[in-house]
Simulated scan of single mutants.
Amino acid sequence: MRESKIEKYLKDEVEKLGGLCLKFTSSIRGVPDRIVLLPENRIYFVELKNEQGKLSVPQKYLHKKFKRLGVHVYVPYSKNDVDKFIKEVVKNGY
């Protein structure tokens, strides 16, 4: 499945929860594709890949920096992974 279809699915699912799924652009290579904003000041960073996708070296490096700051980056590789992300978001307080 194309990454763009997974990205659209994520956007649609987030919007069903009343949130925003914003495209994240930056001058720094490796930043996650999307910022997910949900009610109650809930913010998530999401890097989308398809089933064959791999994280680049800059992405791995930046994800480690995020983790050291206590910020998790989710990396769904399929619609099923997006569903798991949504379930986690709902379970953790949405």
Rank of each mutant, 00 (worst) to 15 (best):
K8E: 13
K8Q: 12
K8L: 13
Y9F: 14
Y9P: 00
L10K: 01
L10D: 04
L10E: 05
K11Q: 08
K11N: 02
D12N: 07
D12F: 04
E13G: 00
E13W: 04
V14C: 05
E15P: 00
K16S: 07
K16P: 02
K16C: 04
L17M: 11
L17T: 05
G18W: 12
G18V: 03
G19L: 10
G19V: 08
G19M: 09
L20N: 10
L20M: 10
L20T: 07
C21A: 15
C21W: 06
C21K: 02
L22C: 09
L22M: 13
L22W: 13
K23F: 06
K23M: 09
K23S: 12
F24Q: 09
F24V: 04
F24A: 06
F24M: 11
F24I: 03
T25H: 13
S26Y: 12
S26M: 13
S26N: 13
S26T: 15
S26I: 10
S27V: 14
S27T: 14
S27D: 14
S27A: 15
S27L: 15
S27P: 08
I28Q: 12
I28K: 12
I28Y: 15
I28P: 03
I28S: 08
I28D: 09
R29A: 15
R29M: 15
G30H: 11
G30D: 09
G30K: 11
G30F: 14
V31T: 14
V31R: 07
V31G: 03
P32A: 05
P32Q: 01
P32L: 03
P32C: 03
P32G: 01
D33Y: 06
D33K: 05
D33R: 05
D33V: 09
R34C: 09
R34V: 12
R34G: 02
R34H: 13
R34N: 11
I35S: 02
I35N: 04
I35H: 05
I35E: 13
I35T: 04
I35M: 13
I35P: 02
I35L: 14
V36Q: 07
V36F: 10
L37N: 00
L38M: 07
L38Q: 04
P39G: 10
P39N: 12
E40K: 11
E40L: 08
E40T: 07
E40Q: 07
N41Q: 14
R42T: 12
R42L: 15
I43Q: 10
I43P: 03
I43L: 14
I43E: 12
I43C: 10
I43M: 13
Y44G: 07
Y44A: 12
Y44W: 13
Y44M: 11
F45I: 09
F45V: 11
V46P: 00
V46R: 00
V46I: 08
E47V: 01
E47R: 00
E47M: 01
E47G: 00
L48A: 11
L48Q: 02
L48V: 15
L48E: 05
K49A: 09
K49H: 09
N50C: 03
N50Y: 05
N50D: 15
N50F: 02
E51Q: 07
E51V: 05
Q52F: 14
Q52W: 12
Q52A: 09
Q52E: 10
Q52R: 11
G53F: 08
G53K: 02
G53H: 05
K54F: 08
K54H: 10
L55Y: 02
L55R: 03
L55D: 02
L55I: 06
S56N: 01
S56F: 04
S56K: 08
V57N: 01
V57W: 02
P58M: 09
P58Y: 07
P58G: 01
